[in-house]
């Protein structure tokens, strides 16, 4: 058991290190964006003085290393900074910049929405994909297997917005079951919120199912030639039991890893679906902030995305380790 804890501690430490390196990359990349906030907000006709004033006010005139250091230390102390866009233009009047919204306050509700959407999607997609994968493995090479493979590949190969519009067509327009707009807001009841989230969640389910389903199928099938599977068959076990009870527990590690990768995608890559359904998630905020060079928000979003990836992969690693009885029960 102690070796297990050591492995987990090691992975955690590596995760923190990765996050640190990613923060450097984020900062460098964001700073390489052409133009800056001052230019973006003032437009073509800006005077050099006005641009300089805003830069000075926001600290953009400091050398990059200093700015990185300030950002890093602030972030570590839990302060993600103040959004430029909301920072008001106090600099014009020379008054204090205190009236701005913090990045935290801007991101938090959006991130919560994103997590809600990702959570609902995961609850539908993971059991659906794994179940489909198991059935495909059970009836491999049958029409069902081929059909579900085709279905999964078709939905992953179609552009997300296309899948979204098809679903809207069938579930909102032709059969008005679900609302096509996901304009959720704070203080909305859970039921209503869930209803409004369902259509984007179904769209994303179609997008992420293929990977998980095909990995489940492949991982199980790769085990079917093992002697212990033959043994289970020779003990007269039914095919379903052979697959679920004998093959699946040994196929968990690769499945967990693909699930984690797709969950990370649900948090970081769903901007198109958000736009289609006008869902107020973190993806839209991110794109808007890039457009106006609102650097603190962009950086915070990137950091959250990176942390989500690292954390989910870390969890996948740990769960894979736990799924191995050799590590859970050493000699």
């Amino acid at each position: 058991m102690s070796s297990l804890l050591r492995i987990i501690a090691q992975r955690l430490l590596l995760g923190v290190l990765t996050l640190f390196i990613v923060s450097i990359i984020i900062f460098t990349a964001v700073n390489m964006l052409p133009g800056d906030f001052a230019q973006a907000i003032l437009g073509q006709s800006a005077t050099d003085e006005a641009v300089a004033a805003i830069r000075r006010d926001l600290g953009l005139d400091q050398p990059p290393i200093t700015r990185y250091w300030v950002w890093l230390t602030d972030t570590l102390s839990g302060d993600l900074g103040t959004s430029f866009a909301q920072a008001n233009f106090a600099s014009f009047t020379g008054s204090e910049t205190g009236g701005g919204t913090t990045v935290m306050a801007q991101i938090a509700p959006r991130f919560e929405n994103t997590l809600f959407l990702a959570g609902v999607t995961a609850l539908i997609a993971v059991p659906f994909a794994v179940g489909l994968g198991i059935l495909a493995a059970l009836f491999r090479n049958s029409a069902f297997d081929k059909g579900s493979n085709m279905f999964a590949l078709t939905s992953i190969s179609s552009p997300e917005f296309f899948v979204a519009y098809i679903l809207i067509l069938f579930l909102a327009v032709l059969n008005p079951i679900l609302p096509s707009l996901s304009n959720i807001y704070e203080g909305m009841g859970f039921g209503e919120r869930l209803q409004k989230t369902l259509l984007p969640a179904l769209t994303l389910t179609l997008v992420v199912t293929a990977h998980m389903m095909r990995m489940t199928r492949a991982a199980i099938i790769s085990l079917l030639a093992s002697p212990y599977i033959e043994m289970a068959r020779l003990k007269g076990m039914k095919p379903m039991r052979v697959i679920v009870h004998h093959a699946l527990p040994n196929a968990l590690a690769p499945i967990i890893n693909v699930v984690a990768l797709n969950l990370a995608y649900l948090i970081t890559g769903v901007v198109v679906v958000e736009v289609v359904f006008v869902y107020p998630g973190i993806g839209q905020l991110f794109v808007d902030s890039v457009k106006i060079r609102d650097i603190p928000v962009v950086q915070a979003c990137c950091l959250i995305f990176a942390a989500a990836y690292i954390l989910l992969n870390l969890m996948a690693d740990i769960l894979s380790i736990l799924s191995n009885p050799r590590l859970r029960h050493p000699k």
Binding site: S226, P227, Y228, M231, L234, K235, G236, N250, P325, R326
Partner: peptide, 24 residues
């Protein structure tokens, strides 16, 4: 056939280490 396998006809494999399911 399944009703007979394991119940009336049983099998002992060459490598027990490979033929026992590692997960149970």
């Amino acid at each position: 056939k399944r009703a007979l396998l394991g119940k009336r006809i049983a099998y002992v494999a060459q490598s027990a280490a490979a033929s026992f399911n590692p997960a149970h």
